[in-house]
Design a protein around this nucleic acid. Structure first.
Lengths: 347, 347
DNA sequence: CGAAACAATGAAACCGTTTTCATTGGCGGT
DNA sequence: ACCGCCAATGAAAACGGTTTCATTGTTTCG
């Protein structure tokens, strides 16, 4: 920068301004500086800038599994919004290791990032610890899954209402006996979807045959579906707490000789990309994942800039996507052949 | 740091050493410093460290689509390896905008990252430009897709051999007429797979009915499959250059009333997670995506540290995964060619 | 016409580390 | 007792920007 200043015949300070607040400079001066720095291939050193400014224009995203299509599309939304606001993205895959979040969150204290976006519902550091307390004073936002601690802004959908919608849909289709494959215990999404589904079932006098617990994996969907098949009073419809488990369940049902949806309806949750090309195409709840990501970034940005948040909780609209995997209940099929509105051909 | 030094009764320098090279300190001194910094909740400011050390322990990954399951698993491998080597990951989604790579790559010049890992085959900056020249002197590695410029280390599989394997497989299954749905022109993967497949077809005297060009999307697989169906001499097997296009093709074939694999075999490439769940399960070429990511990070690390690279090109083993979507060719006797229905014409 | 506000620039302090070089005392070898 | 060596520590100079405050002319306005 000193060299640029010299070549342009101005002070160091002026060159700095040329890059951080060009409007304050006389046009002629600015031009000279630009030409000088072009000649010298000059680029501002962002470490020095961050050091002095005490902010890095970077945001850290913590998620349990980058390779999971649900998260990766949220991530894409975050990335877009980050880029548009001149920020850069750091990602950490915390996986199953609970301590990884802590070490990643150290980046916040180390001033490498300005904010933390949490997709795994696990707020780093031990509750009550000083580190946790400091974290709560920093820009943090939870997406999709809530964190236990109060005061952390949240971006997501109304999972209770969405699950209730599913129950109502199944009732509309004539089902009387239904079951639920839930996510892992302790997960906020699991709880909300269970609550919503049982509430909706109750409202429509559906007999909720039982809830089984999976772990959001295809395999667990298959395994829990096998359990459901063994019940004496088999349900005619199953609501899985995410699409992967729904795929697994459908697989198990098919393997057991049942047709989906003729003999068994299955509804998923999330509407990941593969759901529409699955055979049968999956009826599911669409989450606006990209918008969730963008919104999360916006909330983080507001916190960084000190702008007052519009609300500490942003609930986006979900959408029930009717496809082939959920149909009329077997008994009701003959009675009335009411066709639900199917989506137009996928892709 | 000054406060910690004061509290521990040592010089600033010594505290610095406690965090960057603790072995050089007397155990007792180290203990005092650790206790002091714990009391003060001290954390090293990584911006200052990077500024002084002129390295950031961060790596930038550029990819065309984070939400694409192929890339996201490679990314996961990179993340793991980065974390294990004490590095942190920046990701940029360059999408279809060719200039985004340039602005992201600025992070390298700005000293925010130490290396660049390219998944999109597009080396930033105009060829021949000074910026490009400087980039080539920095740690850069290409994964999966090659970059045009020589001298950039590459990590991937032998796409030619893999595509040839597919041709041989189809020949072994008794197919005589085959077709290929390729990726977008100009893509190195597209070219290599085309070359390998036609070579393999030639070796086994397969009649390569034609090559159509898709863009790696499900939709393009469906559309190009419709084109293939319109050919007078319809092939009995199709090799798609990735799994998504294979899914789209299968969908189109099914919609036209063909059974897969009885009437038409389909082979994909990549083995993404849903390929085995798909109905029919997809026969495909598995790429060791996670290992590719880890290896790429290792190559980048070697460049950063100045360690001589074992090789400028690392080729990992691929694997032909035999599933249901590719089967025996319909025997000539039974080959009463099914009439295809164009009820749901894509146009 | 004079005071005050303003626009454009510069000098210098500061951000928080790392690293070179110097200093000190202890130690083994002769 | 001397010399050199080494381990442990400290003083001070970077690293490359930003920002406060001061210093100029130049307007503007009463």
């Amino acid at each position: 920068m000193r060299d640029v200043a010299e070549l342009a015949g101005v002070a160091l300070t002026t060159v700095s301004r040329a890059f951080s607040d060009p409007g304050k400079l006389a046009p002629e001066t600015l031009r000279r500086i630009e030409s000088a720095s072009a000649n010298l291939n000059y680029t501002v050193n962002l470490n020095a800038r961050s050091l002095r400014r005490r902010s890095s224009d970077a945001v850290l995203v913590l998620l349990p599994d980058i390779a999971n299509p649900f998260f990766s599309l949220v991530l894409k939304g975050i990335e877009e919004a980050a880029r548009e606001s001149g920020r850069v993205l750091l990602v950490g895959d915390t996986g199953s290791d609970a301590t990884l979040g802590d070490s990643y969150a150290g980046q916040l204290e180390a001033r490498t990032v300005d904010a933390l976006i949490l997709l795994d519902g696990r707020l780093p550091f031990r509750p009550g610890s000083p580190a946790r307390a400091r974290l709560l004073r920093s820009p943090v936002v939870a997406v999709s899954e809530r964190v236990a601690e109060a005061g952390v802004p949240y971006v997501g959908i109304d999972n209770v209402a969405a699950a209730r919608d599913v129950a109502h849909l199944l009732a509309d289709l004539g089902h009387r006996r239904v079951a639920h494959i839930g996510g892992p215990a302790g997960n906020s999404l699991t709880q909300e979807r269970e609550i919503g589904f049982s509430a909706g079932a109750c409202e429509r006098a559906l007999w909720l045959g039982g809830m089984v617990t999976g772990d959001f994996s295809i395999r667990s969907g298959r395994d829990t579906a096998a359990v459901i098949l063994s019940w004496p009073d088999r349900p005619t419809a199953v609501f899985a707490a995410n699409d992967e488990m729904a795929f697994g369940a459908i697989h198990a049902f098919k393997a057991a000789g049942l047709r989906v949806p003729e003999d068994m309806s299955v509804v998923g949750f999330d509407d990941i990309a593969f759901s529409e090309i699955h055979d049968p195409a999956l009826t599911t709840v669409r989450q606006p994942r990209r918008a969730m990501g963008r919104t999360a970034m916006a909330v983080a940005a507001a916190q960084i800039e000190g702008t007052p948040l519009p609300a500490s909780t942003v609930i986006l609209a979900h959408e029930l996507v009717l496809r082939a995997s959920a149909g009329q209940a077997p008994s009701a099929a003959n009675a009335k052949r009411k066709r639900v509105a199917f989506e137009r051909a996928p892709f």
